[in-house]
Design a protein around this nucleic acid. Structure first.
Lengths: 244, 244
DNA sequence: CGTGTTATTGACCAACATCAAACTTAGTGG
DNA sequence: CCACTAAGTTTGATGTTGGTCAATAACACG
């Protein structure tokens, strides 16, 4: 057994938060060939139409999945944080129908699809954990859809802040009530189906009423109760096992 | 080997459209214990908060997955057609975070989760097909989100009509350019993040410009080219193998 | 310091929502 | 087969959230 790459640490922590895996599973994962690569901010890891032969594990930084529609409008589908394997969403699909881009400078680990597929066939428990992870991602997507379809701009933004906080906490990436939100206002707009101008105004509102505070790319939650209420946020859909 | 229940026929056809499975796989699936049940229109098969011990295969009729938000607003996440296994989305999750309701009188087949899980562990090829199916469903969800987030009401409605036509065609449930759309205008609204009144107006527009025709619960596509253009529809995301 | 990116403002506008009423269709029981 | 009822559709009037455009102010970074 090789020494586990530090890249796996956060994956284990994440998997542990959603589905218990054994030490043997861990060892098998750590033995997978992993090619680490630095990705520059604002570049794509996978572009729409690609047929990647590797699967990527996010080790450090933030990624997002998005798509540009016919008339140039952009929709962001998800934000990915360290420990995520965003490509799980396309492991069994030949060509990507959306893109995966770096919001910040990132470190990702590429794993050959074949190795991963082989491991999953051998270790049903790991396969179950990964499948569960994709299902949770789908649940997050549904929550996102519900927001964009039916919630007001205030609710959407508050909800997203709650979600990111809880997810980051589960992998130990929060600092008290503060966390990094490496996303500008127009990216936020593209995620939430709003315009950048409106996002700006709602954010001012939220700050003005003392619910959150922003400093640079960091957000501090000043009043979790009110934020949660404003976003109609219920963490169940994240299916985390620990304390939310 | 038992005679396959007619309920499985359409599942096979659907699986075949997304991932080739062998005759042995088919036989194994057909041997699963299947408890058929009629579901009345407008009743729930699975309610939010349920922890079902069975997994359901839709044999006849239409289902939809939805959720009621905090202030009574409703969002529909997906429409399910015969051959779908909507519960695949929650096979590895304990409690459902949304509901599954019958849009029409339905026949569903319940399969004990344990039997299905056992079969999937034994037959990686079937597991791959099912996993692929859940990934396609996630891709459909992303397309849906993109529409709700970034497309106009006209585009959203046109897109949905295109999607349903293509999906129904893949399981042989279209009649030329006509198909059943067992959904009223306020359900359409809840699916697309619009109001029922606005859906009504856009539909009138679409009919007036000769793109579609509706008669009762049936839609006839009069001009596929224009409908596809109006909806900015590209069927790739459905990942079907046959002719689109 | 300068230069490109991001945030903020203001004026104005449009798409879509809401409300409420009327009309149509479909389903049901006698 | 008709009458009755509930469900769904259509219409009009009016309101609001959030979009667009364009200019200015703040940053961040080399």
């Amino acid at each position: 057994m090789t020494t586990p790459s530090p890249g796996y640490e956060r994956l284990f922590r994440k998997l542990n938060a959603i589905h218990p895996i054994t030490d043997a599973d861990r060892a098998a994962l750590a033995d997978l060939p992993l090619r680490e690569k630095k990705i520059a901010k604002n570049t794509d890891v996978v572009k729409e139409g690609d047929a990647p032969r590797e699967c990527c594990l996010l080790i450090e930084g933030f990624l997002c999945r998005d798509k540009i529609l016919g008339e140039g409008q952009r929709q962001i589908f998800s934000f990915h944080i360290p420990g995520d394997i965003p490509d799980l969403q396309s492991l069994n699909l030949e060509i990507a129908d959306d893109s995966l881009g770096a919001l910040t400078a990132c470190t990702v680990g590429f794993i050959p699809r074949a190795s991963l597929t082989a491991l999953l066939a051998e270790r049903p428990n790991v396969a179950a954990a990964f499948w569960r992870d994709t299902l949770i991602e789908a649940a997050v997507l549904r929550a996102w859809l519900a927001g964009v379809g039916r919630r007001s701009a205030h609710q959407r933004i508050s909800h997203l802040v709650c979600e990111l906080y809880v997810r980051l906490e589960a992998v130990g990436l929060t600092d008290g009530s503060m966390f990094q939100l490496p996303v500008n206002q127009s990216q936020l707009a593209d995620a939430l189906g709003l315009s950048a101008v409106h996002v700006n105004r709602v954010l001012q509102d939220l700050r003005g009423s003392g619910v959150i505070k922003t400093r640079g790319r960091f957000v501090r939650i000043e009043d979790w109760e009110r934020l949660q209420a404003a976003g109609d946020f219920d963490p169940n859909y994240l299916h985390l096992r620990g304390p939310s």
